[in-house]
C-alpha cells in the first residue's frame, strides 16, 4: 500500500479581513500518495496557485494543516520550515531563474544555501545537467536559453537537494505544445526513476491527461470533484467538471430540450458502427427511436431518430461526438412521433 506523502486537512485561506476578504480556498482536503503524479486543475482564479503555495507554506493557511512526509509544516518554526522546504522542490510558469548566474551556478544555488563545498556542488550540478540533457549549456546565462531549456535548468536546480516532492505551478503554460510534451515527459521520467511525488497545477486538461494518475478539480476555492483521471474526465459529475472537459461549451448549446435528435446520414459509414462507437468510445447508450436508412455499398443514407440519455454530461458527450462526424448532420427533432 502506498503511503501518503502530502496530506492537506480542512485547509482554508482568506486574503484580507471583513467584507472585502477574498476566500481563496475553503475546506480543502487532499491526499497525495507517495510516487503519484497528482493533478490539480481549475480555471484562472480558482485558487490553484494559492493551494500549491500553501503546500510549502509560501502562503500560510488561515486554517487547517499541511503534512508533508508525515510532518506538520503549519506548526514548524521558521528555521525548521526552511529546512523542510529543501525537500519540497517547486517549478514555476516563468521559470524564475537567477538571471545574473549562469546555468551551472543556478543549479549550485540551493547547494550553496546548505553550505555544500563548491567542488561537490559543481559535480552534482553537472550530473543534473546530464539528466535534463543540457550539458552543453553549463556556461550559458538564462537570457541565452529558450523557454523549454530554462524550465529544464529550473528542474535541475530544484532536484539538486534531492527533494521528495516536486510542485509544478503551471510549469508548461508558457511553452509551445511540443516543448510542453518534452517537459512533461521529463517530469514523468523523474517521477519514475527518482520516485519523486509530483503535484501538477494547470488550467489545461491535456497536461493532466498526459501525465497524471489522479486529479482534483478546483472551483472557486473548493474541490468540485476528484478521482482517477479517466473517471473524472470521461464522466464529470459536476458543473465545474463539465465546463473543464467541454471548455467551449459546444455540447451544452447543442443539447436539444426534447432530448430527441434526428441524425441524417449523407453517405458516410454505416450507422451500426456509429451507435457502437457511441457506446464504446463515449460510454453513452442512446435509444434508437426510429430509422429509415439504407446501406448502399456499405455507405449509409437516410435518417434516424435517437433518444439521448437523461444525464446531461452523457447527452453532451454524445452530441459532441456526433457533431464531430463527417457526412452526418444532427438536428433537434421537435415534430417526431415515435
Amino acid at each position: 500500500m502506498s503511503q501518503p506523502m502530502i496530506e492537506v486537512r480542512d485547509l482554508s485561506k482568506r486574503f484580507g479581513e471583513g467584507d472585502g476578504a477574498v476566500h481563496a480556498l475553503e475546506h480543502i482536503d487532499l491526499t497525495v500518495d507517495q510516487g503519484d503524479i497528482y493533478g490539480i486543475i481549475g480555471l484562472s482564479g480558482a485558487g490553484k496557485s494559492t493551494l500549491v503555495r500553501c503546500i510549502n507554506l509560501l502562503e500560510r493557511p488561515t486554517e487547517g494543516t499541511v503534512l508533508v512526509d508525515g510532518r506538520d509544516l503549519t506548526r514548524m518554526p521558521d528555521k525548521a520550515l526552511r529546512q523542510a522546504r529543501k525537500s519540497i522542490g517547486m517549478i514555476f510558469q516563468h521559470f524564475n531563474l537567477l538571471m545574473q548566474r549562469n546555468c551551472l551556478d543556478n543549479i549550485t544555488f540551493p547547494l550553496e544555501l546548505t553550505g555544500t563545498p563548491r567542488k561537490q556542488a559543481v559535480a552534482r550540478a553537472r550530473e543534473l545537467l546530464k539528466i535534463v540533457d543540457l550539458e552543453s549549456k553549463e556556461k550559458a546565462y538564462p537570457a541565452q536559453l529558450s523557454g523549454g531549456q530554462k524550465q529544464r535548468i529550473a528542474i535541475a536546480r530544484t532536484l539538486a537537494t534531492n527533494p521528495k516532492v516536486l510542485l509544478c505551478d503551471e510549469a508548461t503554460s508558457a511553452l509551445d505544445p511540443k516543448t510542453t510534451r518534452d517537459i512533461l515527459r521529463l517530469i514523468r521520467d523523474i517521477n519514475r526513476t527518482l520516485g519523486i511525488t509530483v503535484v501538477v497545477i494547470t488550467h489545461d486538461m491535456k497536461v493532466i491527461e498526459e501525465i497524471c494518475t489522479k486529479v482534483t478539480i478546483l472551483n472557486h476555492g473548493r474541490i468540485a470533484e476528484s478521482g482517477l483521471v479517466e473517471e473524472v474526465f470521461t464522466n464529470p459529475k459536476t458543473e465545474a467538471g463539465r465546463r473543464l472537459v467541454y471548455p467551449d461549451g459546444v455540447p451544452f448549446e447543442l443539447l436539444p430540450k426534447s432530448r430527441v435528435i434526428r441524425v441524417a446520414f449523407n453517405g458516410g459509414t454505416a450507422y451500426q458502427p456509429l451507435i457502437a462507437s457511441l457506446a464504446i468510445d463515449c460510454n453513452v447508450k442512446v435509444n434508437i427511436l426510429g430509422a429509415d436508412t439504407r446501406n448502399i455499398d456499405g455507405k449509409a443514407f437516410g435518417t434516424m431518430l435517437l433518444g439521448l440519455p437523461e444525464n446531461d454530461a452523457e447527452a453532451a458527450r454524445a452530441m459532441a461526438y456526433l457533431a464531430g462526424q463527417k457526412d452526418i448532420t444532427v438536428e433537434e427533432a421537435t415534430d417526431y412521433h415515435a
Partner: peptide, 19 residues
C-alpha cells in the same frame, strides 16, 4: 518570482538579500 523561488528553496531573509 525569483524571490519566491528562493524562498521555496529554503532561503533565509538574509540569504535572499545577499544571494
Amino acid at each position: 518570482g525569483v524571490i519566491e523561488a528562493a524562498q521555496a528553496m529554503g532561503c533565509s531573509p538574509w540569504q535572499i538579500v545577499t544571494k
